[in-house]
Design a protein around this nucleic acid. Structure first.
Ligand SMILES: [Mn+2]
Ligand SMILES: [Mn+2]
Ligand SMILES: [Zn+2]
Ligand SMILES: [Zn+2]
Lengths: 142, 142
DNA sequence: TATTAAATTGTAATAAATACAAATTAGAAA
DNA sequence: TTTCTAATTTGTATTTATTACAATTTAATA
């Protein structure tokens, strides 16, 4: 059940706790780029003792060890994403969904030569998603 | 003094107010990607009656009319940028500076064909800037 | 099993953003 | 120029995301 996440935490040499395992598993299985609050609410169902501070602490340490990444696409709230290969994101201004865009960044090469030490690359596109522009219903209504 | 900004607001067909002119001018002359609070503090010097709500309202309307853009590179705080041609950004994790990177986005072409209506393109790189990796002093110390 | 440093919890404090009503003002009309 | 009105600004209150921190609990080692 949790072998994969136990291994990931061991490789990062950070303590294995049930909370960290649950959070990591949740992010791996829900590629919806949830906020801390969304992770907290989802996991609190099966663990009513869970503290939101723990979610903040956990995503911080998972982030620092590169197991997850943070997404700042939607301003005024941080979102988190299990690290699964390089990809970019598309934010739909209508339904709010954040969609994975599987492209490489062709600018990375020139960035590596510009003198700055590049550690992270993020590409964000914003607009109206395919579903919404076809006029389908969506969770935000409108 | 403000002719350029009067013209920009007129072209966008939004009312010309001293507050909007000051904010637009400030962003044009300070390409530091300031937060609302930084804009507010700077402009309050010469206009003690300025309200922070006005800064929020003004950047919203300038944003909606495409005169400025918002930057979500640093999580949990929105930053603003006068719109001067397409460029990406580099955030230095050491000194906090946000540096303009003048590149085009080569992914835009494929994005336009993927079915989503693309309205905005943002590229964010994070790492250690040239100055900081040379060990020079910087405003955040460390 | 005992020990201890680290993690979790719960509460309190900060800070960013939003909501809203009263006062003011930009710009159009007279 | 003066009058009028819808839009804007202001100030305050509220909401929400994040950080701080002390007490309790626990993972990992001996
Ligand atoms: Mn993703
Ligand atoms: Mn810029
Ligand atoms: Zn959509
Ligand atoms: Zn730097």
């Amino acid at each position: 059940m949790f072998e994969k996440y136990v291994r990931l935490l061991k490789e990062s040499q950070i303590k294995i706790t049930p909370q960290r395992l649950e959070i990591l598993k949740y992010l791996d299985e829900h590629r919806t780029h949830p906020t801390v609050d969304e992770i907290y609410s989802a996991l609190k169902e099966n663990n009513p003792a869970l503290s939101k501070t723990t979610v903040y602490n956990s995503v911080d340490i998972l982030l620092n060890h590169g197991l997850i990444q943070s997404i700042t696409i939607s301003g005024s709230e941080l979102r988190y994403d299990f690290k699964h290969g390089m990809h970019h994101h598309f934010l739909c201004k209508k339904c709010g969904e954040i969609i994975d865009i599987n492209v490489e960044c062709p600018n990375l090469g020139s960035m590596l030569e510009c003198g700055h030490e590049v550690e992270e690359v993020h590409g964000y596109f914003k607009g109206i998603c395919k579903k919404c522009s076809k006029g389908e219903t969506n969770r935000n209504g409108s």
